[in-house]
């Protein structure tokens, strides 16, 4: 286990921003933090990046206590905040050299390291450009390179793709996957949930400072109940009336919405349960013309969890 938090808690005055957060990030995995604004994602990340004290709890990186030994912990952590600026009048390679120096990277190693990082983030051709002339997406990638300059084991990325266009987001996703392939562990927060679900090995949904649910997407689906929506098309109104009556007798069917001769219903069962439902329609002489299933996405789960919490 590379990162472990134990009952991490943060109060701002009387306001509870983080409530006994317990997460574990394994080596070489991408771990996602999902939550609405004010959920405590940035607070948790800032504590883990040694930029804020926790009110209670502990956090360990590679067995080192972040609270007791922040100087050692910082060597293992690369942090990219959600909002950041750059220095005017510094060139791209000078910018990285400055942070390499700040991380005590020996001078002789900096040149090749900077070249490698610029290639990784696709900015090799911008090496001699002034940082303030780069586009937002390029600055984000440069900041990612900055967070990697001391070759940390864990990357903490707070909304790394915020404000980026789709192409820049895709590039960022590609780079993060490359970093994962190199064995880096990544703790990432984002509001772009489909991307996060596609990229992360595991996620944690935060709400009001509390980890509401965590695990890999499948585990979360199971925890939440593997919910799907089924849409059934009936031949005639009479079939629809009888079909709804059949569905009402099935415990796996939840809320139903009628649209013309179609019924959309929440379904808490497996594919086998759907085939049993079709059989029940046939036994009751209900004529159906179509049936389709839509599995809930992470975003829908997220909205549901947050909705329940609120």
């Amino acid at each position: 286990m590379l990162l472990k938090t134990v009952n991490l808690t943060k109060y701002y005055g009387n306001f509870l921003a983080l409530d006994k957060l317990n997460i574990e990030v394994r080596e070489g995995e991408i771990y996602g933090f999902v939550g609405p604004n004010g959920a405590g994602k940035t607070t948790a990340m800032k504590i883990l990046a040694c930029l804020m004290n926790a009110s209670a709890g502990e956090a360990y990186i590679d067995g080192i206590s972040i609270m007791q030994n922040p100087a050692k912990a910082k060597k293992l952590i690369g942090y990219m905040p959600d909002f950041f600026g750059v220095y005017d009048n510094l060139k791209v390679d000078e910018y990285l050299d400055f942070y390499a120096d700040a991380h005590n990277v020996p001078k002789g190693e900096r040149g090749p390291l900077i070249d490698d990082l610029l290639r990784l983030v696709n900015l090799a051709d911008k090496k001699d450009k002034y940082v303030d002339t780069l586009s937002r997406g390029m600055k984000q990638r440069l900041c990612l390179a900055r967070s990697l300059i001391h070759e940390p084991k864990l990357l903490i990325l707070d909304e790394p793709a915020s404000g980026m266009d789709p192409q820049a987001r895709a590039e960022m996703k590609f780079i993060l996957k490359a970093l994962k392939a190199q064995g880096k562990s990544i703790l990432i927060s984002s509001h772009i949930l489909p991307e996060l679900s596609e990229m992360c090995d595991r996620v944690c949904i935060l709400s009001r400072g509390k980890a509401v649910v965590s695990g890999n997407i499948d585990e979360i689906m199971d925890t939440m109940g593997r919910r799907a929506k089924i849409t059934i098309g009936f031949l005639a109104d009479e079939d629809l009336q009888n079909g709804v009556a059949v569905m009402r007798t099935n415990d796996l069917v939840g809320e139903m919405v009628r649209e013309g001769n179609n019924v959309e219903a929440v379904f808490n069962g497996t594919d086998e349960d759907i085939s049993k439902l079709i059989k029940a329609f046939a036994l009751s002489d209900v004529r159906i013309v179509s049936i389709s299933k839509t599995v809930q996405s992470l975003e829908q789960i997220f909205l549901e969890v947050i909705g329940n919490e609120n």
Binding site: K46, A49, K74, Y79, P81, G85
Partner: peptide
């Protein structure tokens, strides 16, 4: 917004 970047260095 560069202070945090400085403070999380060595």
């Amino acid at each position: 917004q560069t202070l945090d970047l400085l403070l999380c260095t060595q």
